[in-house]
């Protein structure tokens, strides 16, 4: 009696479970191997996701080994007495499986300029704080990234202190509202843990001509020097660009 019930019911539920776990292992593996994990996580936490994919594979392997092997009944009565489910188990497996299958087909996209504007790019200079781990005072001005600059300026905000320093930074283009047509912002998202906490930082760039040639969200490399200007009623450092080249979007769009 018990055996008959088992052969009718248990394998399906187990197979569904295994498929869901396998699908999630593959999702994590895919993000790992394709480098798409860069879009989702800070590098410090990637090993956790990678280890999780291996762990899930191990669980799937061990469990399927058991499933194939188990002509003897698994003592389900011992394993499942605590069946305290909020959702029906097969429904849970289906949700996990469906989302994982979607995850396998979905390529995460980094955030764009509209998100930066929505998350308050204008506040960036006060929003960041120096992180001693990554903050170097002895670097050459032209070696600084966007976030290095923002942190440096944050520590010592007087714009005139940076006048004529060489700048070579890359990032994506934002058109902040209320800025004249010959200004744009070169920006980056900074990640502290995962995409959920990405916050934008940016530097104003003064162009010799109109900014229309550089569409929002396109990636640019800016060369130039720092000047002080009053932009949108605020006295601040501005990059006076000498050359501006479009570059392909980097595989890892964030700074840390």
């Amino acid at each position: 009696m018990a055996n008959r019930r088992r052969s009718r019911y248990v394998p399906w539920a187990d197979i569904l479970d295994l498929l869901a776990l396998l699908a999630w292992a593959l999702v994590l593996l895919k993000y790992w191997l394709t480098g798409q994990l860069n879009i989702l996580l800070h590098p410090d936490y990637m090993w956790l996701s990678n280890a999780a994919s291996l762990f899930l594979l191990l669980v799937v392997f061990l469990r399927s080994f058991r499933l194939v092997q188990s002509t003897r009944a698994i003592p389900a009565a011992i394993a499942n007495p605590r069946h305290f489910t909020l959702l029906p188990p097969s429904f849970s497996s289906l949700i996990l499986l469906a989302v994982a299958v979607f995850g396998l087909t979905y390529t995460p996209r980094p955030f764009a300029s509209d998100t930066a504007l929505q998350r308050g790019i204008t506040d960036t200079l006060t929003m960041t704080r120096s992180q001693p781990r990554q903050f170097r005072l002895d670097n050459q001005p032209e070696d600084r990234s966007v976030v290095d600059w923002v942190r440096t300026i944050n520590v010592y905000p007087e714009p005139d202190a940076y006048t004529d320093q060489a700048v070579d930074v890359s990032g994506f283009v934002i058109y902040p509202p209320d800025w004249p047509d010959n200004y744009l912002m070169v920006s980056r998202f900074v990640l502290t843990c995962c995409a959920a906490d990405a916050y934008p930082v940016g530097l104003p760039v003064k162009l010799s001509g109109d900014r229309a040639a550089y569409a929002p969200d396109s990636w640019i490399d800016v060369n130039g020097k720092m000047i002080t200007e009053t932009l949108a009623d605020r006295r601040q450092v501005v990059i006076e660009s000498t050359s501006l080249t479009e570059i392909p979007e980097p595989e890892n769009p964030y700074e840390y």
Binding site: L37, L41, S49, C194
Partner: peptide, 12 residues
């Protein structure tokens, strides 16, 4: 992206 980033971070 947020959804998957939360999941990828939380699942481990």
């Amino acid at each position: 992206t947020l959804f998957f980033s939360l999941l990828v971070e939380a699942i481990p």
